[in-house]
Simulated assay, not measured.
Amino acid sequence: MWDSRFAQFNLDYAASTNHFAGVAVSTGDIYVGGYPWRINCYPRGRSREGNVGDHVSLCLELRSARSTGGVKAVFDAFVLDRDGRPNWYTNRLPQVTFLPRRESGWPRFVTRRDLEARHVSEDGCVTFVCGIVVSGAGGDAIAVPPCSDVGSDVARLLTMTETDRATVPTDVTFSVTGEAFPAHRLVLAARSPVFRAELFGPMSSSSIEVQDMEPEIFGFMRRFIYTDALPGDDELGSSPADAMQHLFAAADRYALDRLKLMCAQKIWENVTVDNVASALALADTYNCPELKSRCMDYFAVDANLKKVIFTDGFTWLVQKFPSLAAELKERVGM
């Protein structure tokens, strides 16, 4: 038995120009054949394909499955031009067995050049139309509720009542400038190789003091580990940019690569003439080539460079990071 559905996916292309490779814009859950699916669009491509940002990737992800054997499905997609006519840039994806939390699709669905030339509307959006066909939907299978969202279940560990917490007790406490942060070893170890080594190594302890970090930043990082979510802008205090930079450094310290890139994206979105020098130094210090290359590109724009060189930030960069300043001068031809 088959089940199918078409879904329209609108990409705010103008807002996606600053995205890093590997950062997806996704739909909500789309139910086909009794299973939740999600369409993931990577405006700069999926980084693991070695995409340098000149192609858009389009993928279908099975959000959960009732069978560990996976679900067979066919995925098709086209993009509308400015006149509303469909354009196919790829062949239909053959029937694929999708495994839970895995995606399949086209790493190079369409070039950004083609999108900009033919498909970006006046309001800066691109419309994709995607078809999902699920094989073996229904049939004589016993109707079992969809799998729960594991991420939400883990997040509840942070918001349990005192009564519930007694049944799932924390087993490690971090002390950050005198403030205590209880946590679960297995959750932290599953998310961070640094925590894994610290919590299950020969020197492991149930009480750990964290040096050189503010309690607020550790709290944001702990919450991300449980929820995969960044703090809201209203939570970052009087200096959101500084807080995001400190969280970026914490992510690097504990090898939380996704958090690090998410922070880098936020930092890049707020780059200005006055702070680009500090953003570049931050990217170089904590080894983030994605942010560093974009800051270098910002400097390379002549109109930006003429303003930046007269800022205190640029003077600070030259004095404190001479090798980076030399690399920058070579890059922009100073």
Rank of each mutant, 00 (worst) to 15 (best):
I142V: 15
V71I: 15
G201M: 05
C41H: 02
I217E: 08
M221D: 04
N51I: 11
R258W: 07
L261P: 01
Q8N: 11
K292G: 01
P36W: 13
E269S: 15
E290S: 13
L282Q: 11
D252W: 04
M262H: 02
V210H: 06
E116Q: 13
T173G: 02
A326G: 01
V318C: 13
G34I: 01
A255W: 00
E209N: 10
S278I: 13
F174G: 04
G22T: 05
T173Y: 03
V187C: 09
R118M: 12
E61R: 13
F224T: 02
S148L: 13
T315H: 10
V25I: 14
P289C: 09
A250Q: 08
D164V: 02
L324F: 07
V210K: 06
A197W: 04
P240Y: 09
R108V: 09
E49T: 15
L188P: 02
A137L: 07
S192Q: 08
L230F: 05
R185F: 05
E103A: 13
D164K: 05
V52N: 10
F78S: 11
E290V: 08
R44I: 01
L157G: 13
F98L: 10
A249W: 08
A197T: 10
W37N: 05
M221C: 07
K307Y: 04
A241C: 09
D234F: 11
S293P: 00
V194Y: 03
V176E: 03
F20Q: 02
G84K: 09
Y42T: 12
K266F: 03
I142L: 14
E235N: 00
S239N: 14
R165M: 14
V96W: 09
P322I: 00
L324K: 02
R185W: 05
V301N: 00
F181W: 12
R66T: 15
V96C: 09
P202S: 15
S57N: 09
E290H: 13
S278E: 15
N51H: 07
